[in-house]
Amino acid sequence: MSDVHYFFPPAAAYPLNRFLFALKSDAAARARYVADAQATMRDYGLDEATRAALAGFDRDRLVALGAHPYLLFMAQVRLTMEREPANFEYF
């Protein structure tokens, strides 16, 4: 994608980055995704290749599709915090 770790987000990847932003920052969107991943991804206008890459959170493929690495990272953190609350210590 680029020589730098954090690259200019390609416009074609806007639906994917919009979806990752929602997973990261919108608890209601996360809940919808957990309840029905396929329907939620379709609602965000994601194509089949993107939905397939998201199924396993395949970072290399998603970054190649234009996903912002940080959005990918924190979307996964927030999903994990809700899936495994007992594993997190709040200070």
């Binding site: 953190v77 994990t80 915090m81 997190f88 210590e89 200070f91």
Partner: peptide
Amino acid sequence: TPQLLVRPPTEDR
């Protein structure tokens, strides 16, 4: 870093 606030098991306490 948010692991300072909410620590997952991956972090050295």
